[in-house]
């Protein structure tokens, strides 16, 4: 692992322009991924995690626009329309495999197309490579499956095929946008195993986006918790689960059923994720935060460094504003 991060997102801002307002879907998100590392981005719907993923690939569509910050891939800023140069370096796997595959082409056709574009492979060579890729992602009887259509595959198999397609361009970074959400638990376990295996074999860096804390715990080395367009906490996975520093992270972990006594009521977070329509002037979690105090409603918290590289954007940890950090 070199010191230079593979991908570094700094102060990313993505704004959606609607008729009535500007929505800051991503509002100053900063994080890094190093080679061979798996970094998680976890948050609820509307938190801006998928928009972040799409920005890295340059896939933000109208009315959304990247309005600030930089996305550095090996030191080169992608936001200056450099995506085309790195098409093969970063690949994405979407949530619903059946939507990511074109139903009128065989799996083979689709992988071969990716191979033609990124590796200039054609004909028999491309077919052989496609079969190899399918075998790599654990599809049995690949020589036959390569000629099948997406509807002939089960959900898990289809997601494997999508991953094979993403690998066709031999990427350094794989962005997985809720890759297991549409799948059953046993299939989810297979896909998580597969990703871990691929990572070990090919030294892939993975950005793992999900709303499922359990998946994050299993699959990632580092976690960024995102809330209303902002990263509120970043930490090594184990540390985060042991001692969540931000009240939101804490509440999120507590509200997962199965971790608490079934006879007790589940702890909840009242209210809903707000839609950020302007620059932050306060802590966006304050209205729902059980530990909010006066300053939370008037100061936008900055990230405070905590022990072991981790940080949290919460005034509770700001020594100047509260008695600071006593919760760790």
């Amino acid at each position: 692992m070199s010191d230079e991060p593979l991908l570094s997102v700094r102060d990313l801002e993505v704004v959606f322009h609607t008729e009535r307002e500007r929505i800051h879907a991503v509002d100053g998100v900063t994080f890094e991924i190093r080679e061979g590392q798996t970094v998680g981005l976890v948050g609820e719907s509307g938190s801006g995690k998928s928009v972040t993923a799409r920005s890295i690939l340059g896939l933000v569509d109208e009315p959304g626009r990247i309005e600030g910050g930089e996305i550095l891939y090996r030191g080169e800023d992608l936001t200056e329309d450099n995506w085309a140069d790195h098409r093969g370096d970063i690949a994405i796997v979407f949530q619903d495999p059946t939507n990511s595959l074109n139903p009128v082409y065989t799996i083979g056709n689709q992988i071969e197309e990716a191979l033609r574009i990124h590796q200039d492979l054609r004909g028999r060579a491309a077919t052989d490579r496609a079969i190899e890729l399918l075998e790599d992602v654990g599809i049995p009887d690949a020589p036959r499956r390569v000629d099948e259509y997406p509807h002939q595959l089960s959900g898990g198999m289809a997601q494997r095929a999508v991953i094979a397609m993403a690998l066709a361009c031999d990427p350094d970074l794989l962005v997985c946008d809720e890759p297991t959400t549409a799948l059953d638990v046993t299939i989810q376990a297979q896909i998580l195993d597969l990703l871990a295996e691929l990572q070990a074999e090919q030294d892939l860096a993975i950005l793992f986006i999900t709303h499922d804390m359990g998946v994050i715990e299993d699959a990632t080395d580092w976690v960024n918790v995102i809330y209303a367009g902002e990263v509120v906490e970043r930490a090594p996975t184990e540390a985060l689960f042991d001692h969540p520093a931000h009240p939101y992270t804490r509440a999120l972990l507590e509200s997962i059923p199965g971790r608490t006594d079934p006879d007790e009521r589940l702890p909840t977070i009242e209210g809903e994720v707000p839609t950020p329509t302007g620059p932050a002037t306060d802590c966006r979690f304050a209205p729902r935060c059980p530990e909010a105090f006066e300053d939370c409603r008037s100061v936008a918290p900055e990230h405070v460094s905590l022990d072991g590289d981790r940080s949290a954007a919460c005034l509770l940890h700001d020594p100047a504003r509260s008695d600071g950090g006593e919760r760790q």
Binding site: S154, V185, T186, A189, Q190, D193, G214, V215, D218
Partner: peptide, 22 residues
């Protein structure tokens, strides 16, 4: 199924069992 629950929510202690196929 129980062992496939991701994260520490799983009551299964030990290595996760990954079922083959669908």
């Amino acid at each position: 199924l129980l062992s496939a629950i991701p994260g520490s929510g799983s009551p299964w202690t030990g290595e996760r069992i990954t079922l083959r196929g669908s």
